[in-house]
Design a protein around this nucleic acid. Structure first.
Lengths: 348, 348
DNA sequence: TATTGGCACTCGAAAGAGTCGAGTGCTAAA
DNA sequence: TTTAGCACTCGACTCTTTCGAGTGCCAATA
């Protein structure tokens, strides 16, 4: 049986109509489409064929047809006409990223929230740190008598800080000593190397002072770990409640996507561009009723993170895929500006 | 009509049974309670009286009775026997707060999440900064050639930092100059004073350098604002989905409580101890189906924040009120240790 | 040969009828 | 003042009926 042109048009129309209405699509409705314009009976014959080929499902005998996962897949891979963003939509997204000096962490969290608002889906934004990234510099700044601010600057430009409150007074001498010590021991090592064992070993080298300085050493460890772990932000999880598909599963899905160890591996390892997982294609069985759209973004040349959408299988792919793509691109651009300035200025 | 002892016992039993089962409570059920032990007919007479007095409501003629808001209020204010925490429960909460050197912001966010997990309610945690808090110290630390870390330390011990990426190379001289300038202009001023206008005025004093240093001045402004605004964290909003009461209102409530400008004023201005708003007592009409429990916590002597529970009116007050109280107390204690060490060590 | 009109059939959704039982209010007796 | 007795109410549940959108199949048609 050939998957001829009319079958393609009919499948397209079924997918699009079902996405729009949420109701199974019947032969009469389809026959009224200008790009189809054959009688309902003919449409029925074609639908029977598409059903045979696995592209359609039938909720029950006397209902219309609904796309199967295969049907969605065929639609997305070949039939769909992506709706390019209007200038207004582009301007809208551009405006979101028109921030002069963003805090990268907040930017990511805000992006997730904004993208959720923009798409009506739950979103996830995640960054990962390549294993070659090293500690570039550690600093310690006395804030008041017993408080210091610890800074860890990584070779990828990420800076993290932490307030440490100590049990003794910190003067410039102590700060200088510790700064030198910490830089000597940590700089140049990859973040990956800096394990609890590594830190214990460093601590021992402080000899009798190891107890006193322990909060700072632990602080450095925590900051390194924080940088290496990257970020994981969710946005608009409550959007799932607006879809009847999730009427009683919403809580389960909301909990699931909150867990980085569950969703992270799934979204973290995809080619560039937008990757789509439709329903049962998801490796997590709980997501068999959901579709997942993920897009990588990069800082300059370096692949650095993923931003994704989670919504019902019946989501508007033709609109959301280009949106997500554009959004990820813009996010990458802004992060690149933020992080690359330090080297970009070298020539000036 | 007297609100005599037996009426009180019956009202108590109705509230407690209804909280437990979610079903209207009938006379037969009540007559079997040992503390009531009169016939169903007598109970019915008493219930009719309690209904007259406004303590009960009746979903429909042939259903049992349900507490009215007045009924809950009477229960909470006079009849309820608070269930003190068991040692195990106390240990559980104590363990949550057994952290050596917490980041205050994370602590608050984690507390909200943990409290939600512990109580099954949505939670909110908020801090406010008294208007007398001043800027104590500003620091600027070069991180790499064009990146600096800005620090603002407030007189209440709060430290905030921000990474600023600049368009020029920062050497020690520039950093020293700006540090002195910023401390001269900002220190001693209350956070409240540091408005956009204030910052513009300061910026002008930099003369020809005002453009160059503007990102730093703006950074200081943002940090001051961040400290002054305090924090607002939500936890476990999805818990609301577990109550049928919220079957179709969950989304609305989740959105509402996410808005600090809506919920903040309601929870931010209450006496110490646990304050309870039952259903329609809430000034926000959308919360008429919810109860709100709020508890203040303080750092040392200074009142500093609020932590609260949001759940269905039918919540287990006798358990949750003591829990929230203990939780707020512990949170305050840990924050006090964190913030007060700097002065507490002055005697040593 | 592909398309179409006709027709009997299917099956879920919605509406209506009947039953059940928990719970009530009222009255009269204890 | 308390209680047993009794008629009554009304939601929850079940069963049945009706309705109609949609189907599959077949014979007629272009």
């Amino acid at each position: 049986m050939r998957f001829d042109d009319r079958k393609k048009r009919i499948l397209s129309a079924i997918v699009e109509t079902y996405i729009r209405t949420g109701e199974p699509v019947g032969s009469k409705t389809l026959s009224e489409f200008p790009e189809i314009s054959v009688s309902p009976a003919t449409v029925r014959n074609e639908m029977a064929a598409l059903f045979e080929m696995g592209f359609l499902e039938q909720p029950h005998t006397s209902a219309g047809r609904v796309p199967s996962h295969l049907g969605y897949r065929a639609y997305i891979d070949g039939l769909m006409r992506a709706k390019p963003l209007t200038d207004d939509e582009k301007d809208g997204i551009d405006a979101l990223f028109n921030i002069s000096d963003p805090d990268p962490d907040k930017l990511l969290a805000d992006s997730a929230e904004t993208l959720a608002e923009y798409t009506g889906c739950a979103t996830v934004a995640m960054t990962t740190t390549p294993s070659y990234v090293t500690v570039e510099h550690i600093d310690i700044v006395p804030a008041d008598e017993t408080t210091v601010v610890l800074l860890v600057i990584a070779s990828n430009g990420v800076v993290k800080s932490k307030v440490c409150r100590l049990f003794f007074r910190v003067n410039t001498g102590i700060a200088d000593f510790f700064r030198k010590f910490a830089n000597d021991r940590f700089c140049g090592h990859t973040l990956k190397e800096i394990s609890a064992e590594f830190v214990s070993a460093v601590s021992i080298q402080l000899g009798e002072y190891s107890n006193v300085f322990n909060p700072l050493i632990v602080g450095i460890y925590e900051l390194c770990k924080e940088v290496y772990d990257g970020q994981y932000y969710l946005g608009g999880r409550e959007k799932l409640l607006t879809y009847n598909e999730y009427s009683d599963r919403a809580l389960e899905i909301m909990k699931l996507i909150s867990k980085r160890d569950k969703l992270g591996p799934v979204i973290g390892n995809n080619p560039s561009g937008v990757t789509v997982f439709i329903g049962k294609e998801n490796s997590l069985s709980q997501l068999s009723g959901s579709s997942l759209l993920v897009a990588r973004f990069s800082i300059g040349e370096n692949d650095c993170g993923t931003i994704g959408l989670i919504g019902p299988v019946r989501m508007d792919y033709s609109r959301l895929i280009p949106h997500l793509e554009y959004f990820a691109e813009k996010l990458g651009t802004l992060l690149s500006i933020t992080y690359q300035r330090k080297t970009g200025d070298d020539n000036g």
